[in-house]
Each structure stands twice: as C-alpha cells, then as structure tokens.
C-alpha cells in the first residue's frame, strides 16, 4: 500500500547552510494516526513545516500518495488535500470565527461549504455561539478547536498538527486527541507532533522518535511505550516537562 504521506531522508532548514533536519524518514498510511516525539530542538516542527513548504528541503523527498511533493508551494497544499495546524498563530485573531471558517472553506462550492461549516458547528457548538466575535478573544482550548475545525473544512487526506495539546487543560487534551483518533478511524491520515508523549502514544497507532534532526526509533505506539530506551530517554520526567 502506498502511504498517503512519506518523507525520505529529508534534509533542510531555514537558512541554506544550516540544516536543522539531517535525514527524516517517516510515513503515514490512510486512516493511520502517527505521533512524532523527541527532545526540544530535534526538528519535529521543522519536519512538518518542510512538508508544508515553509522550510526549504535541500535533499531527500516528500511524497504524497506516491507523487513527488518536495518543496511544493504552501499555497497549493489545501487544494491537494493537506491540512496543517501550526503550534502558534494558528487562527486569524483579527477575523471573526465565522470568517475564519469561511476562509478554510474558500475553495469549496457554496453548498458544500455551508454544509461543512454546519458540520463544524455541530461538532463544536461553542464556535456557533461565538461565530460573530473575533477569534482573538477565544480561550486556548477554543482556539485549538477553531484551528482544527478550519483545517478539516477542506476534508483533507492528511492533517498535520504541531503540538495541539500545548497550553490546554488535561480534559481538553483528551477531547482533542479523541477527535483526532476519530478522524483517523474515518480514513484521514493524521500526523501529530507532541511533547505530551505518553498521552499521545496511547491514542496513536505508531510513533517516531526524532533526535538531532534524524528519525531515530519507530514502531507501533504500544511497542514504543514499553521500549526501555524510549522510556528512559524520552518518556522520563525531564523529557515531558520541557516545552
């Protein structure tokens, strides 16, 4: 089976001569929920940005459904079925919630857009209540909901999320993770970077450990949770507390 998303030995960074990624290899299959964990500065966020075309790839390949996607323009991503929720500034604070959603649905026909926005409101009733207020006024959890809701409007094949649990209360984290699990079960490929490693591994299918810009260890989340090396190095208190 061809993975929906595949990274092969990806090397790259913000500045040409200073790569942050030194060879990231991973894949996500249809309907699979994959987590990336690793220490701070390992290049987890950078790996996602490389897929999104926000970081220049100097070597290696990104494939989407087996097709070349290396250094693809960010602007085409949405139309090709890739959604990305960055860690910070992932909503438009100066726009209303309704406008944030309108923006996420901009490439859809009017009828489909209305239908999906309705579905998003059904999933997150609080967004409907606040639809006319500015998104900048939302709480952390509500922002994350809006960001995810907006990303889902285009009905993506792949959704990438950079630390969706950051700054959220534990019960909301479980809610967000549960939502992602549900998406994967519906057939979407979900790729998530998380500091909150243990909880993330409990809901996901497979896990990659990234360190110093390289894919180090990978396996099913269950194996990894019990792997002594992963346990001692990445799931210790030191690894979890760092932000």
């Amino acid at each position: 089976m061809t993975p929906v998303l595949e990274m092969r030995g990806v090397v790259g960074g913000y500045v040409p001569d200073l790569p942050i990624l030194h060879g990231v290899t991973l894949h996500v299959n249809r309907g699979e929920f994959v987590t990336i964990i690793g220490p701070n500065g390992a290049g987890k966020s950078t790996a996602m940005k490389a897929v999104a075309g926000l970081v220049r790839i100097s070597d290696g390949q990104v494939l989407v459904d087996g097709e070349e996607f290396t250094n693809h323009p960010t602007e085409d991503m949405a139309d090709l079925g890739l959604a990305f929720v960055p860690q910070t500034s992932n909503i438009f604070g100066t726009l209303t919630i309704a406008d944030n959603l309108r923006l996420g649905a901009r490439s859809l026909t009017k009828a489909v857009a209305a239908e999906r926005i309705e579905a998003a409101y059904a999933r997150f009733p609080i967004l409907r209540e606040l639809s006319r207020s500015l998104a900048g006024g939302l709480s952390g959890g509500q922002r994350q909901m809006l960001a995810v809701a907006r990303a889902l409007l285009s009905a993506p094949r792949i959704i990438m999320l950079d630390e969706p649990s950051a700054g959220l209360a534990p019960n909301i984290v479980q809610e967000v993770f549960g939502l992602l699990r549900g998406l994967a079960d519906e057939g979407v490929a979900v790729l998530m970077v998380e500091q909150n490693a243990k909880s993330a591994m409990r809901v996901s299918d497979r896990t990659y450990v990234l360190a110093e810009g390289r894919s180090r260890i990978d396996g099913t989340s269950e194996q990894m949770l019990n792997d002594p090396e992963v346990k001692s190095i990445y799931l210790g208190d030191a690894g979890r507390k760092r932000t």
Binding site: L54, E75, M77, S89, I91, F92, T94, L103, R106
Partner: peptide
C-alpha cells in the same frame, strides 16, 4: 467578498493564509 477576506487574512498572517490556500 471572498477576495477581501483573503486579503484581510494575508494581512494578519501570510504563512497561515498560504496554508489555507490563499495565493500571495
């Protein structure tokens, strides 16, 4: 208008608007 919305979005956050498919 939809284009006006895209312009306001690009004004606030160019990277995020690109992720949403707004063409610079």
């Amino acid at each position: 208008s939809a284009l006006g919305l895209a312009m306001r979005a690009a004004a606030e956050n160019p990277a995020l608007s690109a992720i949403n498919g707004v063409r610079f």
